[in-house]
């Protein structure tokens, strides 16, 4: 038996075998995020003649567990841009703080450098949705190229440098594109066909009124509530126009219920 002091209190090798310290060796490949953990599901958005409507439900799932039911996944930037996050919630929080830093940077320059009365110029010199969209593209693509992606699919809504409505999407690979209507996650399969019925092209979208656009979005949220198993009937909706952002974070799908499910054979914990 080993009586040396350095072996005191240790499991005996002759009984338990030598200690397996292999986990301490970092010789294998470095691993980073391999999958998201706490996740948000679809974000959907559609353009209309004066701006964009975006919505996302307030659920953060832990696998199939509906873990948090009050999570706000639509974030605003400088009161002019809305950014919707699907995917990993902690990565979303990281991005949110990062964007907060950018917004603080903007407050440094909040000094009008030209004619004092020219508030328009002051506003024009701040980062707009186009700039943020480009920034997020670069950020996501750079993270993917360092094999440490931020596990999100992001929608950006606001106005670009030419003061035109902008709706863009960036995913964890840095893939990005704009479209009159966009959806992340399951929404891409479930909501996008519905939205395209109303706004297949930019021209179609430019004909939609605000009420119509909100109606389409609500219709899509309803479909998602029934067809996406990781969804919720509580959601946030943001309407971006030239006048600013209207953000409601505690909306409820009206008169919707899963109660009927109990009568479906094979659903849930029925035994008969």
């Amino acid at each position: 038996m080993d009586h040396r002091p350095q072996a005191w209190g240790r499991p005996r090798d002759d009984v338990y075998g030598a200690y397996d310290g292999s986990y301490l060796n970092n010789s294998g490949p470095r691993t980073v995020t391999q999958s998201p953990v706490v996740t948000g599901t679809s974000v959907i958005a559609i353009k209309f003649k004066d701006g964009i409507v975006m919505a996302a439900d307030n659920l953060a799932s832990y696998g199939s567990l509906a873990r948090f039911t009050d999570v706000k996944r639509l974030r605003t930037f400088l009161g002019t841009t809305v950014i919707g996050f699907g995917g990993d919630v902690s990565d979303m929080q990281f991005l949110d703080r990062h964007l907060e830093e950018l917004a603080v940077d903007e407050s440094y320059e909040a000094e009008p450098t030209i004619d004092e009365d020219d508030q328009e110029a002051k506003k024009a010199s701040q980062l707009n949705a186009g700039n943020i969209y480009r920034y997020l593209q670069k950020l996501m693509y750079q993270r993917r190229n360092s094999f440490d992606p931020l596990w999100n699919h992001i929608l950006v809504a606001g106005f670009d440098s030419a003061s035109k409505p902008l709706l863009g999407s960036v995913d964890l690979r840095g893939t990005s594109f704009t479209s009159p209507s966009l959806a992340t996650g399951f929404g891409a399969a479930l909501a996008q066909p519905i939205m395209r019925k109303y706004a297949a092209t930019e021209e179609d979208a430019a004909k939609l009124t605000r009420e119509q656009a909100v109606g389409v979005i609500k219709e899509c949220m309803k479909v998602l509530f029934y067809r996406d198993a990781r969804s919720l009937d509580r959601y946030s909706i943001a309407i971006v126009t030239k006048d600013g952002i209207e953000l409601k974070e505690d909306e409820q799908l009206e008169k919707q219920s899963w109660a009927f499910a109990e009568r479906i054979k094979g659903y849930g914990t029925q035994t008969v």
Binding site: A60, D70, V71, K72, R73, Q93, F94, D96, R97
Partner: peptide, 12 residues
């Protein structure tokens, strides 16, 4: 002076 949310807080 008032309780303010933590940066990046997403829930209530």
């Amino acid at each position: 002076q008032e309780e303010s949310p933590v940066d990046g807080e997403v829930g209530n």
